[in-house]
Structure formats: C-alpha cells, structure tokens
Nucleic acid binder design. Structure first.
Lengths: 149, 149
DNA sequence: CTTTTACCTTAACTAAGGTTTAGGTTTTAT
DNA sequence: ATAAAACCTAAACCTTAGTTAAGGTAAAAG
C-alpha cells in the first residue's frame, strides 16, 4: 500500500511543520537560516520548504547549544561538512567528541570554583592576598579535579 | 608614627582607585552603582567617593558572577543586608552557601549532559524517540550523578 | 597659573540569541 | 470563491553586562 500524502517521507516540510516537530519557534528557524545554520528551498509562492534532514540539523544545533557552543561556532562546524550535508552518525561523533572537550572544561572550571567556594565559606575572609576565590589565577588554584596535561 | 596621607585607612577612595584595586573598569563601577550594587558619596565637586568597604562588596559581586548569578540577583542579595551594610564574614557565608546550591545544580546538569553525550557518541543516532540527548525531560535522564532528594 | 589627568552625565553602541510588529502574500479549508 | 490560517520581509525591540563617545567640570602636577 502507498503512503498517504501527509505521511509521505519525501514531502518537503513547511517552516511551521519544522517548528512543531523540532520544538523551535518559526522565528528562530528564520534566524538560523539567516546565520547559515540551516537551508531551505522555496515554493512557487516564495515560501520555505525544508528537506527532512533539517530536523537532524536542528537536533544537532540544540544539543550543541545545551553544551554551551555559540551559534557562530556551530555554524562553522556544520559548514565544514562536505557539500553542506547534514551530519551523518560519523560526522556527529566527530563534532560531539570535540564539543565534549568544551563541556569537560566547563565542568572542571566549575568544580574548581566550587572547591574554592567551600574553602572560602569556611573562612569567610575574601582576603585580597590569601583568598583563592579572589585570586583565581593563583598557581595553587590550578590543582583542580580532572585531567591536567 | 602616623600614617602618611596616601596610606590613610580612613581616606575615601576615588572611582579610579577602586577600579585599579578591584580590577573592575570605571565604567563598570558606574554601572554597578546605577543598578544599586554599590554606593558612593560625592565630593564638593560632585565626584564619587567610596568607602573602603566597597572593595569587599565588589569582591562579592565578582565571585557571585563567576558562579553565574545575574547582577539583579546579586543586587537583591546585597539589598537584603540590614541598613545596606557591606557583607560581614557571616553574611558572606550565608550568601555563598546559597549560591553554592546554584553552582551544584549547574555542575550536576552539565554532568548529566556529559553522560548523555558520551552515550550518544557511542550510538550517533540522535534518534527522536530513543536518544536521551534529544529528550532531556525523559524520566530516564533524571538519573544523574549527585544528590537527588 | 596653566596644563594634564581624572572625573562628570547622557546617550548611543556592542554582543548573542532571538521575538515582536507591521504590512503584505500564499495556501488551505470551507 | 472566499475566508482563515500560514507564510513572507524588514526593521524594531528585548535582555544582560557592560563599553564608548561627546561635551563639559574638577583636581592634581608643574
């Protein structure tokens, strides 16, 4: 049996459909397109039509944003894919492995900060000379948890 | 022996001196004052004069910002101190203990995210239904590290 | 006494990541 | 055929945390 037209896997998606399925506002999709993060073709009447792949691209964008990657950097990473293709599983592995490094660093920074804060809550000093919280570049404060190589 | 005038502990500080000692730009000090985070009196010629306590206040602001507390919230916390006093060691303990909770939460969120990302790097799917990265509110994803009470 | 240097205020500008509004067109449903 | 729902563009607006500029005054140094 043939697919009904609404389920047709080859049907291009309108911006409203992409918004609903991806959980991203229409205005944000316009914005992403302007920034070069996603692409669309146009209908005879100049309305955006998206390939289904856009959903995966938007998923990648959302995850990268949660990690804390700015849109410009996400755009750059997506732009490095050959012929602007949507990231494959392999592409995604490469990108996400790179971004995980960013995440590790952020977690490490915050953990160092928490340790310093715990120390400081104990003394309450905020001393200009002695307090590691106030002297984040003090060599002592570089001994945080996590890898240091 | 008496203190020289430049070392006088009671001398009010100019905005430039506060900027230099606190490592915060003059424009930022103006900004903090407009937002009610710090106070100053004025010289005969309408120039700002700061009590030395302002240095401790600015130190608190800087630490809170590192933790990720927005200025409005810092202003609120500082505003709750009786007669607008500069935080004592006790005050600081109370504030920082509260903010540490914020920090713990952020660290926990990021750690959950990292675990999900590691899982996803393994599969590369980004599947709409199955991928925990794409479904952060999935009940499974609530099993992160750290306390859950 | 004069020249720097520091300071004053107000307003505009920056960056990121969008949202809102206004005015007009296309698609879809009736 | 018409009306409603969805879409289009451009520009303005929003938030946070400030910085920069312009035009003028005060304080410090020589």
């Amino acid at each position: 049996m043939t697919l009904s037209s609404t389920d047709d896997i080859h049907k291009a998606l309108t911006v409203g459909e992409v918004a609903e399925r991806s959980g991203v506002a229409v205005s944000a999709l316009h914005f992403y397109e302007k920034k070069g993060l996603i692409q669309s073709s146009r209908s005879a009447g100049n309305q955006r039509r998206y390939h289904r792949d856009v959903l995966r691209r938007v998923a990648v964008i959302k995850v990268a944003q949660r990690i804390g990657i700015p849109l410009a950097e996400i755009a750059e990473a997506l732009g490095e894919l050959p012929d602007g293709r949507t990231p494959t599983a392999r592409d995604w592995k490469r990108m996400s492995a790179k971004w995980r490094g960013h995440l590790d660093e952020r977690i490490n920074d915050l953990t160092v900060l928490r340790d310093q804060l715990n120390e400081c809550i104990g003394c309450g000093c905020l001393s200009i000379k002695a307090c590691r919280l106030r002297n984040p570049f003090d060599s002592l404060s570089e001994e945080g948890p996590g890898p240091h190589f």
